[in-house]
């Protein structure tokens, strides 16, 4: 399980750390398991403390045009692009 989740989260976990991590995770999951005691039948999920109408923007170009800032912290860049190890599709 830990290996699969770590793969999904793209986190390299050293082989020897897997058992310990599995123990910790199952302890945490055991702890949160108490939620199942709560009767939540028909309770609307709470996704944000804000309950007002979503606020929106007008369709105006107000941003962009600073490629140097966008690329300023890039670990690797080339010719105005971000560069990454070759992706094979």
């Amino acid at each position: 399980m830990v290996r699969r989740i770590a793969g999904l989260a793209r986190i390299q976990v050293a082989e020897e750390k897997l058992p310990g991590l599995a123990r910790e995770l199952s302890a945490i999951l055991g702890f949160v398991e108490q939620l199942s005691e709560v009767d939540t039948q028909g309770v609307h999920p709470y996704t944000s403390p804000v309950e007002t109408q979503i606020k929106a923007r007008a369709d105006e170009v107000t941003d962009g045009g600073y490629p140097d800032d966008i690329l300023a912290n890039a670990p690797e860049k080339d010719d105005g692009y971000f560069a990454v190890p070759k992706v094979v599709e």
Binding site: D78, A83, E89
Partner: peptide, 11 residues
């Protein structure tokens, strides 16, 4: 994927 032998470029 075709701009560089071992890199992919992102725009």
């Amino acid at each position: 994927h075709d701009q560089h032998p071992d890199l992919s470029f992102v725009d």
